[in-house]
């Protein structure tokens, strides 16, 4: 098997200012599938074609933003090894017991030099995608409710010390650098796109003075047509749209950025290309950052750099 180690983004826990307003948004507008609520009041969602119990969890809080972002790893042995590797690298890890999140096994938690809390876990209950495992239909009614993305695809996080974050992902967690935007002097990176798979990004970071900030969680759509449909549904529901529909130069992804009711940005995304670990990274100079963000308009939208939660 070629895909081992860290498999994919598995879950994000996001803070919202009004829980029920946010549940209505994520369930009925974004079209996620609500899969449970726990004793703490957290609400669990998955995208329709995801098989594990949850991928996106919201929690009522007095501020917006990201609590943590978790990756699923291949198995328990991988989890134990990566835990030891992180500690050997010099990062403190914390074990969160199985069951602290619904239907989720033990998690290894650590904090990046960017201020973001990351998790690794090996087990989350498979509840399926609503289709049969034998002679399945290509899709079911859940795909038709709201925007209905396929999966939680990646996140872009803003914080300091991106160079150190890159070392942790590439030297300990087995990710590789897919694309980067250079600093104005060309000596470092202001933004990096990292993959643990065949995707253009599983996580991305941009240099920002405040630690632990969320730029966006991204949800995968199946086609450009579906991204445009997502834009229609956003407008029908008065969802504030930030940028798009357009295409990124970086990753070649087709995109809309918009905000949830608490000001957490999310993306409906499709496309890109399929990199391999032996590919060298693609590089954007700072003066071409505008094309990297919005290729047709060649515009470095100010909100992309300044609006985070």
């Amino acid at each position: 098997m070629a895909l081992t180690g860290v498999l994919r983004p598995g879950h994000a826990q996001v803070r919202v200012l009004d829980l029920e307003e946010s549940v209505r948004f994520y369930r009925d507008v974004l079209g996620l599938v609500e899969t449970g609520r726990d004793a703490e009041g957290r609400v669990y969602f998955k995208c329709w074609d995801e098989r594990d119990h949850n991928s996106y969890v919201i929690r009522q809080a007095d501020r917006a933003g990201l609590d943590f972002f978790g990756f699923k790893v291949l198995d328990k042995a991988t989890l134990d090894k990566l835990d030891a590797d992180l500690q050997a690298y010099g990062l403190a890890t914390e074990l969160i017991p199985a069951g602290e999140m619904l239907e989720t096994g033990e998690r290894v938690r650590f904090t990046l030099p960017s201020g973001h809390v990351m998790e690794l876990y090996a087990d989350k209950t498979c509840i399926g995608n609503g289709l049969t495992e034998v002679n399945p239909a290509p899709w079911g009614p859940q795909r038709e409710h709201g925007i209905a993305p396929v999966r939680l695809d990646h996140a872009l996080l803003y914080g300091p010390n991106v160079a150190e974050v890159q070392k942790i992902f590439t030297e300990v967690l087995g990710f590789y650098l897919v694309e980067r935007v250079l600093t104005p002097d060309g000596d470092g990176n202001v933004a990096i796109w990292l993959s643990c798979s065949h995707k253009v990004h599983d996580i991305a970071f941009a240099e920002y003075p405040e630690p632990g900030k969320l730029h966006h969680c991204s949800f995968l759509m199946e086609s450009w047509e579906q991204v445009l449909r997502a834009g229609d549904i956003m407008s029908m529901n008065l969802v504030p749209v930030d940028i798009g529909p357009t295409r990124h130069g970086v990753t070649r992804g087709c995109t809309i950025y918009a905000w949830d009711p608490s000001g957490n940005r999310f993306e409906t995304f499709m496309g890109g290309y399929q990199p391999y670990p032996d590919y060298g990274p693609l590089t954007w100079t700072f003066d071409n950052f505008g094309q990297g963000l919005d290729y047709p308009q060649r515009k470095l939208h100010e909100t992309f750099l300044t609006v985070v939660s």
């Binding site: 200012l17 917006a64 608490s262 609006v307």
Partner: peptide, 14 residues
């Protein structure tokens, strides 16, 4: 023109 009005949801502080 070009006003960065932020997230419209009370989250970003702009």
């Amino acid at each position: 023109r070009g006003i960065p009005t932020g997230c419209h949801g009370g989250g970003c502080g702009v």
